[in-house]
Amino acid sequence: MLDSEFEAMGRSIPNATILDKYLVASIYKAVRLTNAINTLCDSGITDEALPILRSLIEHTINMCWITNKDTSARLRQYINDLGTGAFGK
């Protein structure tokens, strides 16, 4: 589904902003997390998929929160959360 939508957009975003880049990176991550969950569940390793599910939930909430309103400020805050001062705490 997503592949056809990106195909319809010409697989490029002219003059991509930081928000555009964040969204593309985020959807890529969301798909990878989903694939990981599906792979584990398909193999019967259901409970062990839950930590990855939490990652997907948190990632999704962040995406929704950023795009919901005050997008520029929220994206800045999101990126600053992962700044060198906070990284690894």
Partner: peptide, 24 residues
């Protein structure tokens, strides 16, 4: 947990992700 329960939540999250994309 059944795989179906986890698939359900995962699909819900994907729906939210796609909706966030559609906002932009």
């Amino acid at each position: 947990f059944t795989p179906e329960a986890i698939y359900g939540v995962t699909a819900q999250m994907l729906g939210h992700v796609i909706k966030a994309l559609n906002c932009k």
